[in-house]
Write a protein that binds this DNA or RNA. Structure first.
Length: 417
RNA sequence: GUGGGUGUAGCUCAGUUGGUUAGAGCGUCGGUUUGUGGUACCGAAUGUCGCGGGUUCGAAUCCCGUCACUCACCCCA
């Protein structure tokens, strides 16, 4: 029996100081989105299950095994969103007139009932971008450049953009057939999983980790072999535009994405700080049906937990630090503490981060607390200061302390800042 | 879904072949002539030994189940 007080498997509390890193990432992301003129969209966390069946395809493992699905009291089949794209597509399809070329982003929790491990939670958080509109190589490149800007704003180093193309939807059957016919003679050298993939997911054979499969894959023709020349040209234009934008990348001909709706440009961003789940982001151009309409777009999703793990230690420390220094009010006796009550209001109105003891602790205890809470300044008042209308301002880093007129508090603090 | 490791005070952990009132360090709280933190000294509090069941005269220790954490497979962000 689980204790009532335990949190659910794979679902964790995000607490201080880590929560400050989240806030920094989020606010910096919003700045970048503004620069690229993308608008936020907040879709519900619960959707009709059909929303995901249509967009992800009902054979994907996410839909088959990982969704938190349940029936409402009214008998509707609903689920907690396992990813963000489908909900945005549902939104866009209902507002097609106004949203011909929507540029949207979202941030929030997603739910997948997988076995947790490093970089894999059951409730995890994604930042996603969807750029809706007709296919163009420049649009693909702009979205990748946006992501590159985002990672720079997050001061993420050591990440690698890996790009590939899956060709157009017309190319797709040809690619699958081509791959199958080349793999057929080596079927016996493939692992059990890959033999199964031959039928339902040939592309997946390309990124199998099994050494035997890797050897077979090395001998295959690149998948561009089976694509129309226009598709190859499309991808080349994406790469050329990225060069213009100054985005660095590597082309990985073996990169495939798990979801069926992708076509043309696909990419993943990996980091060596992540362990086995080394992809912190994945994206691509897609075409999918929602409410009977076909929507084209390009987008990506970033696993926030993974992005956090990929941060260098120094950056983590920087992002988790409190933005404002702490001012602590200390009163020697009850009279001084009562007098500090209106003072704390004034200082907060001036924008300072201020605290004081509210439990009548001894002065020593108050000082100790100030030290523990890493107060930058302590303002001390006792009998003599009350009488003289002054206050002691102590710099907790240097230990230096001086008495200033009560009216000069803000001025004195500001000269330090 | 499959497999491995782990679960003892707020934190990091110790706990001998099962044997009395379960320990340490750090942290917390209080004190070292009642107006001053971060160093020192003194003192104090705190655990259903993850949870449930079993074996035993006796279980933190052995067995089973369960929950959670963790790592890998798988899948994906």
């Amino acid at each position: 029996m689980a204790k009532v007080s335990q949190s659910l498997q794979g679902m964790t509390d995000i607490e201080f100081p880590e929560v400050n890193i989240w806030q920094t990432l989020e606010s910096r992301a919003r700045e970048v989105m503004l620069q690229y003129d993308f608008k936020e969209i907040r879709t519900p966390i619960v959707e009709m299950t059909s929303v995901y069946l249509h967009s992800l395809g009902d054979t994907s493992e996410i839909v088959q095994k990982q969704m938190y699905a349940f029936e409402t009291r009214g008998g509707k089949q609903v689920c907690l969103r396992p990813e963000g794209t489908a909900g945005v597509m549902r939104y866009v399809s209902n507002n097609m007139q106004e949203l011909q070329d929507a540029r949207l982003y979202y941030m929030g929790p997603m739910f997948r009932a997988e076995r947790p491990q490093a970089g894999r939670k059951r409730q995890f958080h994604q930042l996603g971008v969807e750029c809706i509109g007709g296919a163009s190589a420049r649009q693909d490149a702009e979205v990748i450049a946006l992501q590159d800007s985002l990672f720079k704003a997050w001061e993420l180093d050591g990440v690698v953009f890996q790009l590939n193309t899956r060709g157009s939807s017309e190319d797709f059957p040809k690619i699958l057939d081509g791959l199958r016919s080349e793999l057929m003679p080596s079927t016996d050298d493939l692992c059990e999983d890959c033999r199964r993939r031959m039928d339902n997911n040939v592309l997946r054979v390309l990124d199998c980790k099994n050494p035997g499969c890797k050897t077979v894959v090395e001998g295959l023709s690149p998948i561009t072999t089976w694509m129309a020349p226009e598709s190859v040209a499309y991808f080349e234009e994406v790469l050329a535009t990225l060069d213009t934008f100054g985005v660095s990348y590597v082309v990985n001909p073996l990169l495939v994405r798990g979801l069926d709706y992708y076509q043309h440009s696909i990419w993943e961003v990996t980091s060596d700080r992540l362990g086995a789940q080394d992809a912190l982001s994945g994206g691509g151009r897609y075409q999918m049906k929602a409410n009977g309409k076909t929507i084209e777009g390009v987008g990506f999703g970033i696993g926030m937990e993974r992005a956090l793990m990929a941060l260098a230690k120094e950056v983590e420390d920087k992002f988790s630090a409190e933005a404002l220094p702490l001012v602590m009010l200390v009163g020697q006796n009850e009279e001084a503490q009562a007098a500090n009550l209106p003072l704390i209001v004034q200082l907060r109105e001036l924008g300072y981060r201020v605290r004081m003891d509210l439990n009548g602790k001894s002065m020593k205890a108050q000082m100790k607390a100030a030290g523990r809470q890493q107060a930058r300044w302590v303002l001390i008042r006792g009998e003599s200061e009350l009488e003289a209308q002054t206050i002691q301002i102590r710099d907790m880093e240097s230990g230096e302390q001086r008495e200033v007129p009560f009216a000069d508090i803000a001025k004195t603090l500001n000269t330090h800042w």
